[in-house]
């Protein structure tokens, strides 16, 4: 059975772009997450920040820098590459593997805070948890994200969220950071024009 043709073909939609966080907002949000980490971890003792490439890495470094400004503690920062743990490896052309770089003290027995830019389906974090268990045994694992856009496909939640952005599935959240893209910004693409 065929569907009847639409009476009025919908006009081509204008791709809309909305700035959710500007540079000053990003910096305030990072400051707040840094304060929250200090509060929730009683001064960030025994804590390690692990950034998930690409943009989780500069975020982790910024958080560590802010934490040391606020409380004068040095939090080790590392990089956790999750490429080989992804569940969609076979759906794409082979992905290049990036470096995993753990801080000198390692992660065994530490409180690890995973840092990423956007929390969406939760699959990246699932992969990160698997990768983490292969490189060591942390005492506990927490998750910090700049943006939570919803639409989880796995039972995963963040401990520290910079900004909750309610989105439609068709929309796209793009985070840019000065270190990787030249500017600090969070934009929402493809939303219905306001």
């Amino acid at each position: 059975m065929a569907y009847p043709p639409a009476a009025h073909p919908s006009p081509p939609r204008q791709p809309s772009v909305k700035v959710i966080l500007a540079a000053a907002d990003v910096s305030r949000v990072v400051d707040r997450i840094a304060h929250q980490i200090l509060e929730k971890t009683q001064g960030a003792a025994g804590t390690v920040l692990l950034g998930i490439p690409t943009r989780g890495v500069p975020l982790a470094h910024r958080l560590a820098a802010r934490i040391s400004t606020f409380e004068d503690v040095t939090v080790p920062v590392g990089v956790l590459d999750i490429t080989l743990y992804r569940d969609d490896l076979r759906r794409h052309a082979t992905r290049a593997v990036g470096p995993t770089d753990l801080p000198p003290g390692g992660i065994d027995g530490k409180r690890v805070v995973l840092v990423d830019d956007v929390l969406f389906s939760g699959r990246t974090v699932r992969a990160a948890l698997d990768a983490l268990s292969d490189v060591g045994r942390p005492a506990s694992v927490q998750l910090a994200v700049l943006v939570d856009r919803g639409h989880r496909q796995l039972p995963i939640r963040a401990d520290y969220v910079g900004k909750n952005i309610p989105t439609a599935l068709a929309e796209n959240v793009k985070v840019t950071l000065a270190e990787t893209d030249g500017t600090d910004e969070v934009k929402l693409y493809g939303g219905t024009p306001a």
């Binding site: 052309a93 992905r95 593997v97």
Partner: peptide
């Protein structure tokens, strides 16, 4: 990995 890891 590079030959088999993805869908090439």
């Amino acid at each position: 990995y590079l030959l088999l890891g993805g869908n090439n």
